[in-house]
Amino acid sequence: MINWQVLAFNQLSLEQLYQILKLRIDIFVVEQNCPYSDLDNLDQQCRHLMAIENDQITAYTRLIPPGIVHKGSLLENQAAIGRVVISEQARGRKLGYELMQRSIDAVWEETPNIPIKIGAQQHLENFYGKLGFKTISDMYLEDDIPHIDMLLDPENN
């Protein structure tokens, strides 16, 4: 059985924080071969959505409130969902849609009707499109992986 939790940074246990960072590094840095600094000083300002099974975090997203990432720009009044990850052991079980829907619901519970932006790997465009996200940028490379920006606007869904 999956236990879903949304916690602020200061509510995370040391064990949960360790598991989150390990999961992100295992997938983004090691599996995807993208050496980058995962610790970007945003985690402390975010909420963290986790799927926990048998005391292990198997799926995770970082929920970024408005005004954090795009301060001073036209995008300042948008929330963001990032660091979307499912452990290798939990793949193939269709957790991705539930993870993202729970993330969207958690953002809108905190800040109703706010647009949500994601920086998606381009090959996942259809996946996110099924959740209502629309592509708003051309392809760009991030850590040598093709990405696109996508927006979920509650006014247009």
Rank of each mutant, 00 (worst) to 15 (best):
F9H: 15
V107L: 13
V30Y: 10
E142K: 00
D138H: 02
C46G: 07
V29T: 11
A8P: 03
D149K: 06
Q78S: 14
L124E: 03
N3S: 10
V69L: 08
F127E: 03
Q78C: 15
A120P: 09
F28M: 10
N157L: 12
G132I: 08
L151C: 07
Y140G: 08
I2S: 08
L49I: 04
E155R: 15
K134G: 01
I20W: 01
I145F: 02
Y18P: 13
I136G: 00
S73M: 10
M50T: 08
M50Y: 10
Y97L: 12
V85D: 13
L141P: 07
E15L: 09
A8Y: 07
K134R: 11
A8N: 08
D40A: 10
V6G: 06
W108K: 12
Q89A: 12
P115E: 06
L141W: 07
L99E: 01
D55P: 02
E76V: 14
I25T: 14
Y36V: 07
M50D: 05
G132F: 02
N156G: 13
K134V: 11
D143Y: 07
E142W: 05
N126S: 15
Y128P: 09
N54C: 09
Q78K: 10
Q89D: 10
Y36T: 04
I25Y: 12
G132C: 13
A79P: 02
I136T: 02
E15P: 01
D138N: 09
T58Y: 02
G96M: 03
P65I: 06
V85N: 05
G72K: 02
D149P: 13
M139I: 01
P146C: 00
G132P: 08
M139H: 00
N54D: 14
S87D: 12
R93G: 05
E98G: 04
M1H: 11
N156E: 15
S73T: 15
D26C: 02
L42M: 05
N33G: 02
E142L: 10
M50S: 09
K117S: 14
G67C: 14
L23N: 02
I2M: 11
A59F: 04
M150K: 04
E142Y: 04
C46K: 05
T111K: 12
R47N: 11
L99I: 07
M150G: 03
V107W: 03
P154K: 14
H48C: 06
H48E: 10
C34K: 01
E155W: 13
A80G: 08
I25L: 15
Q5W: 04
Q45L: 15
S13L: 06
T135D: 05
T58H: 08
Y128N: 03
S13K: 06
V84F: 04
I20E: 03
H123G: 06
A59H: 04
W4Q: 09
E53W: 05
H147P: 09
M1T: 08
K22T: 15
I20P: 06
Q32V: 02
I52A: 06
A8Q: 07
N113C: 00
W108C: 13
Q56L: 13
I2N: 09
I25R: 11
Q16V: 12
H147F: 00
N41Y: 06
N41A: 12
I64K: 10
G129W: 00
S103N: 01
V30R: 04
G72V: 13
S73P: 09
